[in-house]
Deep mutational scan, measured.
Amino acid sequence: MATDAALRRLLRLHRTEIAVAVDSAFPLLHALADHDVVPEDKFQETLHLKEKEGCPQAFHALLSWLLTQDSTAILDFWRVLFKDYNLERYGRLQPILDSFPKDVDLSQPRKGRKPPAVPKALVPPPRLPTKRKASEEARAAAPAALTPRGTASPGSQLKAKPPKKPESSAEQQRLPLGNGIQTMSASVQRAVAMSSGDVPGARGAVEGILIQQVFESGGSKKCIQVGGEFYTPSKFEDSGSGKNKARSSSGPKPLVRAKGAQGAAPGGGEARLGQQGSVPAPLALPSDPQLHQKNEDECAVCRDGGELICCDGCPRAFHLACLSPPLREIPSGTWRCSSCLQATVQEVQPRAEEPRPQEPPVETPLPPGLRSAGEEVRGPPGEPLAGMDTTLVYKHLPAPPSAAPLPGLDSSALHPLLCVGPEGQQNLAPGARCGVCGDGTDVLRCTHCAAAFHWRCHFPAGTSRPGTGLRCRSCSGDVTPAPVEGVLAPSPARLAPGPAKDDTASHEPALH
């Protein structure tokens, strides 16, 4: 009773807030009518008042009428009001819900409408889902798969039609296919003929059939049928067999079959498995989609049935006599038709004709302190090069084509190399640097090759510096006499390219 009084008091307290929050009759008014909170006449009256005075006034009048009803109607109103779709449509209802007392429970059932309790003993237990329907569909599909699609060729003596089998029958139906081979029951999904010589313990000319048996419980189990008994694959494991010639990621696949039913060829011909030897223990289905393919039931050349050999690369099948050149017997292992072999060759040939990528240039590290003349020119003028003790990398590039010797140069053309002071002394051009340390401070000019250098860098042994005729380390061993002091540049003949010694390969005349 306390809860009923509290709900009535809360409705009177929030009546105006609810009326202002509800700006549309749908969905709240319609939901109240659906849950029998508002009768039909009051529903029509509220809609009429909404058209006349507006939605807030109409709902305020409806809530005032609701306060005169019993506690069950008020409880049902609060339940409908706080439904998710009403809270989404009328956003101003959320503060009312947040301020609702926590001790007021809106989930209690309506009085007088409590459903009768059902004894637990009368409640049926839930049924577990079964796979009976899938099993029945598999039974119905198996006879259809064994139905012949056409008439065999005159040369083929193997013609068999499976008798119709009602689904209610649980007995196995067997077809006489000759040579002791028996087909599987209607619940078998796949059958492959297997030679009895590969099964340990088999006697006589009995041949087993590799099947997948579907049981009534819905589970499946792969086994071997020899005669009327089934054997699990673990009985046929043979770890010492060295003649297993397995197909790549293979499961067994029928390579020879008669049109209309699988079996042995007439005249004692023995149908073979995809792999010879003992049956392997793992009978998992292969991951290669080509091995799941269903080959055609007629020859791809003459479009006739009979004894066919199936290609492992495509769905086509052929007569042995229709092949070019014809085959006398079934080859062992994987067999592919000429079209598949030709496609494989065409895929391999473009790969062989692809040009080989060019090898990157060989990189040879230079000892610290040495650099090529090109690196000396590329440096920024007026700045010493940083990191001189790091190992430089010199790339061996292809030799350029031989060019004509340089033409003779006048001494005026070499004027930018040297600057003559007032006393006739050779001065260095701006930006000249030593080729060893890279520093341009207090550098000297070689009178023979006009290269800038430090005496301490080229002659670290402490050799005394002569007063005139300074030469760098590369030119100090040259027998050519030094030019007379005061000459602007060496003779043009000295600039012609010539053979250089091994220790002077990195010091070429550089223009500054």
Results as ranks from 00 to 15, higher is better:
V256T: 07
A246C: 13
R272T: 09
V123L: 13
Q172F: 15
K131I: 01
V20P: 02
A271K: 11
P109E: 02
R113S: 10
V226Y: 10
G180S: 09
L62G: 00
V226N: 01
A160L: 07
F77Y: 02
Y231W: 11
S99V: 07
Q182C: 14
V80M: 05
S248Q: 03
D84S: 11
G263F: 03
L97S: 01
P56D: 01
S135K: 14
A117Y: 15
L255V: 10
A264R: 11
A271T: 08
G208C: 04
E51P: 01
A191G: 09
L49I: 00
V226L: 11
T151Q: 13
A140E: 14
G91H: 00
D4L: 02
V188N: 06
F59P: 02
G260L: 14
R113H: 11
G201T: 09
T3I: 01
L10E: 00
K221V: 06
S187W: 02
L81K: 00
K50C: 04
T3S: 09
V37L: 01
A160N: 03
A170Y: 15
G204L: 03
A138T: 10
L63P: 03
L11G: 00
G269V: 11
L158F: 13
L29K: 03
F26L: 01
L28N: 00
F43S: 02
D4W: 03
K114G: 04
Q44V: 06
D41A: 15
W65P: 01
D98K: 00
K50D: 15
A170G: 07
G150H: 13
S249Q: 09
R174F: 15
S220A: 03
P119H: 12
D103Y: 06
L122K: 04
K102F: 14
H14P: 00
R79F: 06
S248G: 12
G197E: 02
F43I: 01
P233R: 12
S248I: 12
G263A: 08
K243Y: 00
A31W: 01
T232I: 09
P95Y: 15
G178N: 03
S153D: 06
K222I: 02
P126D: 07
D36W: 06
T68F: 01
G218V: 11
M194L: 10
H30K: 06
A2T: 03
R12A: 00
N179K: 12
P200L: 12
Q69F: 01
E40T: 00
G267E: 15
F230K: 04
E207N: 04
R139I: 10
T183H: 06
D70A: 01
P125L: 13
H30A: 00
A73N: 00
P125F: 09
T16S: 00
S107E: 07
L175S: 06
V118S: 08
V22D: 00
G218P: 06
S64L: 01
G251L: 13
A31R: 01
I209T: 02
E216G: 11
F236C: 09
A6L: 15
Y90H: 03
A33G: 05
A141C: 09
R79H: 13
H14A: 01
A25W: 00
G260T: 13
S169G: 14
L146S: 10
S153M: 11
E207R: 02
K83M: 00
G260N: 12
R132H: 04
E51V: 02
A140V: 14
K52Q: 00
G268Y: 03
T16G: 02
E167M: 15
V22M: 00
Y231Q: 05
A73F: 02
G240M: 11
L66W: 02
A121V: 06
T151M: 04
P27R: 02
A117P: 09
A191E: 02
V118Y: 14
L10I: 03
A31N: 00
S153Y: 06
